[in-house]
Design a protein around this nucleic acid. Sequence first.
DNA 1: GGTCGCCTGGTA
DNA 2: TACCAGGCGACC
Length: 258
Amino acid sequence: MPELPEVERAVRALRSAVVGKTIAAITLFHPSLRRTNRPARVRALRGAKVQAVDRRGKHQLVVFEDGRVVHVHFRMTGDWHYDAADAPLPRFARAAIAFTDGSRVVLDDPRALSTISVHAAGDGPQLRLGPEPADVALTVNVFASALAKRRGPIKPVLLDQRMIAGLGNIYAAESLWRARISPRAIASQLSRTRVATLLSSIRRVIDAANGARYGEGSGGRFGVYDREGKPCRRCRTPVARILQAGRSTYYCPRCQAR
DNA sequence: GGTCGCCTGGTA
DNA sequence: TACCAGGCGACC
């Protein structure tokens, strides 16, 4: 599920579910999680009390009262599942956190690419992230000077989390479509006007995605994403798909001509 | 920058 | 049986 709006939703749900609770046990089921986590460090979280749940970009941070931090990233297909500690596990359970009140949070992830790591107090994960889309410090000037340093095509640049934290493949494509900018346009060559348009398009697309979930049904109505061969919603030209940096990019060859 | 690997499932 | 997948770090 995870693009920014989905992670934000997941964080809010997690926050209301676990803040103030004390860990009874953490269990890692998937080999890749066992490989990357030291058992003693995970076991030592027993008795730790959750103080806060924070989000930075698509990263989730569970902060404990003693300053330790559990860092979770859903990658492609992770999500939280809530149940009781004695309930049957969901099909793709990769990890579980049981609390002393009998409740449980399960990391449910068919593709098993999610990551979990445990950090000592004062030694949190080093996240190299740019500003959040909604950050008022992210001005057109700031965005333009960041883009000016990048000689490559704009679409892969937008996926770099150091540009804007949390922007993913879907909304990068949607933002460019909305701004009528070719995904192949060279980042450093965008005019200031186009940079301004792109920034406001990114914000509008993210805002719409944030709101769409409650509207149900209205969500998932993309302009170009996953619409190869289907008509552009603006000009009816068939949407094209190209590969950039190994990822699909959908765009309208007419609205977003170079 | 591009490409690959991590994992596993859904779909054509 | 192929290809594709909302991410990202390691590699050239």
